[in-house]
Design a protein around this nucleic acid. Structure first.
Length: 735
DNA sequence: GTCGTCCCGGGTTCC
DNA sequence: CCGGGACGAC
């Protein structure tokens, strides 16, 4: 076999070689699922499948790019013919081919969150609803219904927000239709509708000989239905996923798509990949122990034949600053003692808000780092402004774009003028740009001579820019002209002394991105094509990515699919991680947090460092935080704490009102002294006497006394109505 | 039209 | 605490 099957274990090989018919690959973290998918595709191609009839769906563009890269190594240039992409990019491509069947013209544009929000904000204003209703809240309802593939207007309204959402929704839909635009969910829904059409649907479902879906636990209902339809012609469907890594249920993912796959496809072959190649024994044991607490899992047990490795280092810190300083010093220690590079290391946290203090310490310690996440390049104000110009130039009906840029940079077209243009648009049934043109020509007498001239020159500007599009200029050229001729660049130079240079750089980058897109697409390059890329390819991290040897900082969510030799998991505190906001089903929330912990832990190859702070400042409020329950889930033989003199760890109560000084900072380098296993001294902090706990049968009770530590600790608990019981700690949970 | 001030909200995030 | 959006004053 040409693709080194000998490198694969028996299960992996079985998945790769599985012939026709549905297959479900339950791949644990670090079990080599990417290898399985790529090898399977390579195998299909070698067996004669036409690459252009193969569809592989991933969840991020990054994953798609990596898959393509690996495939090129396996099958060479044939990989380019394959359909590899996200659900959204795949659907956008299909939708463009059949736009007329979906009531769109071929050059439709895609609304991102920002566009959606602006539309809804405006509609809320028009509807005059209470200002307690936020566009975000309304959009959440709209998106939730769309994710589930349900018609919002037919769902029962459970509260006032639902009620508003139901009124907004038809207007929102009409607005998008008028602008020849779709939102992200529409991309999927409209293709789903195409697939349900009698003739076209059938031919589309025969288009692909094989469909493969990665991260299947992340699919929502609509995506699941899409997959079923696309694979209907052949039932050659291969889905790969891990229910334990389902961390996106809050955005509509339904892990039961994975869990119940074999119910919908009874003939499916199920293959489990349980051997982990990534992590050390201790790391894997910790991950297994945490996730074992979740009920309703696909039964699987990850194992490794790697050594136990180093125990997980656990550090208790005074506050979040001390934690950040500890992390920085540990990074330096690991570099010195274990020859780790900065690039080997990642710091993971539950929320972005935690990154700032970490950044400060890293900067103070002169440790290079990069942060993944935050505002993406294409969402930045200046970039968005210019791309909205492009959208309006291409599509005169793009009212949302018109509203955004008509006075950016300011050109004397204020609210009054704009209101008159809007009014004229409504009465004449015109788009805003058409209405502006009409006003400039003197149609609406309401405009004063000054305003009229200003509107006129804006319309002329748009016309002349539009002429560059008709002359088939490159997209990068059009953008460059927009930046120049609208006076946008000039205004930045003059007025924004602080952020101006940075923003100008971003605009140059935008032009460069367009140029790259032009080169890639060749004569096919169109503004619509570029706008699609802007909407679908969030390449914010491309720019900052990989440059030099730097520590990576990111949220756990962003870390999924990645691995590092050393992983720091910071902020392991109740209320931080698990976060548990409690606005939904607490049980489900906790289970998802546990999966998140599982994902975080399994990112580590060799070394894992846990840290938590006893007090943490959030929103200018200092709070005491208990250590995360996840710490206590980890078997204690996997954990190590740094031995420190007791004097160094003063009780918080003694110094609550004292200012922090350098004395508080532990100056000991983290790795220049031996590490001791957690000792048995002191009270277990999780279930101290007096703690309130819940038992499945006896309900809520209070701990009277206890012996031992961790999950095996024996507790004497007083339950009202049941009396005193002796119960092992693992059977109760903290209230 | 622009600037200052007040008020509110503040998870995770891809497309 | 911090930023963004809304609103009032020039």
């Amino acid at each position: 076999m040409q693709h080194a099957l000998s490198d694969l274990n028996l299960e992996q090989r079985a998945a790769v070689l599985h012939g026709d018919g549905p297959i479900l690959v339950l791949a644990g973290a670090g079990s080599g699922k990417t290898r399985v998918i790529t090898h399977r595709i390579a195998r299909l191609i070698d067996d004669g499948a036409s690459p252009r009839e193969l569809l592989a769906v991933t969840f991020t563009n990054k994953a798609a790019g990596e898959m393509r890269e690996r495939l090129i190594q396996l099958v060479g240039d044939r990989a380019w013919e394959m359909w590899i992409g996200t659900f959204h990019s795949t659907c956008a491509r299909l939708l463009r081919q059949h736009a007329e069947h979906a009531g769109l013209s071929r050059d439709f544009t895609i609304f991102d969150d920002d566009d959606q929000k602006r539309v809804v904000t405006q509609l809320l204003k028009e509807l005059n609803v209470s200002d307690r209703i936020t566009p975000r809240g309304v959009l959440a309802r709209i998106d939730r219904a769309k994710n589930a593939g349900e018609d919002l207007t037919r769902l029962p309204a459970r509260d006032y927000v639902d009620d508003v959402a139901r009124r907004v929704y038809p207007l929102y839909t009409a607005r998008l239709a008028r602008e020849n635009a779709v939102d992200f969910n529409d991309l999927l829904l409209k293709v789903l509708r195409l697939l349900e059409l009698p003739g076209l649907g059938e031919s589309l479902s025969r288009r692909f000989s094989h469909v493969l879906v990665d991260e299947f636990q992340d699919t929502n209902r609509v995506q699941y239905r899409l997959v079923r339809h696309l694979a209907r012609g052949t039932s050659n469907l291969c889905v790969v996923g891990d229910d334990d890594q389902s961390i996106y249920s809050w955005r509509g993912a339904e892990p039961r798509n994975l869990l119940e796959f074999d119910r919908d496809f009874p003939s499916a072959r199920v293959i489990k990949l349980e051997r982990n190649y990534r992590s050390s024994g201790h790391v894997l044991a910790a991950a297994n122990a945490v996730i074992a607490k979740n009920p309703c899992r696909h039964d699987k047990a990850l194992w490794t034949d790697r050594d136990a490795g180093e125990p997980i280092l656990l550090e208790e810190c005074h506050d979040e600053r001390a934690e950040a300083e500890f992390v920085a010093s540990a990074i330096q220690g690991l570099r010195a003692v274990e020859n780790r590079t900065h690039g080997d290391m990642a710091i993971l946290y539950r929320t972005h808000a935690q990154s700032r203090v970490l950044e400060e310490s890293l900067r103070a310690a002169r440790i290079p780092y990069r942060i993944i996440g935050g505002v993406s390049f294409f969402q930045r104000r200046e970039v968005k402004d210019i791309t909205e110009y492009l959208r309006l130039i291409v599509n005169p009906h793009a009212d949302t774009a018109f509203e955004r840029i008509v006075n950016v940079p300011t050109r004397g077209i204020g609210d009054t003028t704009l209101d008159r243009i809007r009014g004229h648009a409504v009465t004449g049934g015109l788009s805003l740009l058409e209405a502006a043109r009409s006003c400039a020509a003197g149609a609406a007498s309401a405009l004063g001579p000054q305003a009229r001239r200003k509107v006129e020159s804006f319309v002329e500007l748009m016309d002349s820019l539009r002429a560059t599009v008709s002359s088939r200029a490159r997209v990068s050229e059009i953008l460059a002209q927009v930046i120049e001729r609208t006076g946008y660049a000039e205004r930045l130079e003059i007025e924004d002394k602080i952020d101006g240079p940075e923003r100008l750089r971003n605009l140059h980058e935008l032009v460069a991105a367009a140029a790259a897109c032009d080169d890639e697409a060749g004569p096919e390059a169109t503004p619509a094509g570029f706008l699609e890329r802007v909407a679908l390819v969030a390449s914010a991290d491309d720019k900052d990515g990989r440059q030099g040897d730097a520590v990576t900082l990111m949220t756990i969510h962003a870390a999924k699919g990645l691995e590092f030799s050393v992983v720091f998991l910071a902020g392991l505190e109740e209320g931080v991680f698990p976060a548990l906001r409690g606005d939904g089903d607490l049980d489900h929330e906790l289970q998802e947090e546990r999966r998140l912990a599982y994902v975080a832990i399994t990112r580590a190859r060799d070394r894992l460092v846990f840290s938590h702070a006893r007090t943490r400042r959030t929103y200018d409020e200092i709070r005491r935080n208990e250590p995360s329950r996840f710490i206590f889930d980890v078997p204690k033989e996997c954990l190590a704490v740094r031995a420190r003199p007791a004097a160094r760890r003063p009780d918080l109560a003694d110094r609550r009102h004292e200012r922090r000084s350098m004395d508080d900072v532990d100056q000991t380098p983290a790795f220049e002294e031996p590490i001791y296993i957690l000792d048995d001294e002191g009270e277990d902090p999780v279930f101290p006497p007096g703690a309130r706990v819940r038992h499945k049968i006896f309900g809520i009770g209070q701990v009277q006394e206890g012996s031992g530590r961790g999950p095996d600790r024996k507790l004497t608990i007083q339950f009202p109505g049941h009396g005193k019981k002796t119960i092992v700690a693992r059977f109760v949970e903290k209230v």
